[in-house]
């Protein structure tokens, strides 16, 4: 019996939570991405650009949170496709929750809707994915 026999259309994927987005991680990602954009590193630059008063998480980190949610929900499986739309910024200190819902199960493929929510500000990233189990 498949380990995912319980997964049907409408199944809510277990959420993946980051309690507080870390500016230290942003510094690490500026190296991973070879992109030292100061809006991820320097609060004064963020203020000067009129973008708020906290460092802004790199967009791909937000995608990684949703990928982590998928990989935790479907251990040992692989992501085949994924699309995500960037709707708003995530800032240092934000509590973010990645969640999803199964929209179709066809053979060994599971399709899902995904979203990333920030406490108090709603959905900041949304997308879809297909998982091969």
């Amino acid at each position: 019996m498949s380990a995912f026999a319980h997964v049907k259309t409408g199944y809510a994927l277990p959420p993946f939570v980051i309690e507080s987005v870390s500016p230290d991680a942003m510094r690490d990602w500026s190296v991973f991405l070879a992109d030292p954009n100061p809006i991820h590193l320097d609060v004064e630059v963020v203020k000067a650009k009129g973008l708020g008063d906290k460092r802004i998480n790199q967009g791909p980190i937000n995608v990684a949170y949703m990928m982590n949610m998928l990989m935790t929900a479907f251990p040992g499986c692989r992501i085949e496709t994924m699309d995500s739309r960037f709707l708003d910024n995530v800032y240092e200190g934000d509590r973010v929750v990645a969640s999803g819902e199964v929209t179709a199960v066809e053979g060994n493929r599971i399709s899902c809707d995904l979203k990333l929510d920030v406490d108090g500000r709603g959905t900041v990233n949304a997308g879809t994915a297909t998982i091969v189990i």
Binding site: R78, T81, F86
Partner: peptide, 12 residues
């Protein structure tokens, strides 16, 4: 001038 990510999709 601040390019912004709109969306990203991948097919593995």
């Amino acid at each position: 001038d601040g390019p912004m990510m709109g969306s990203s999709g991948v097919r593995f």
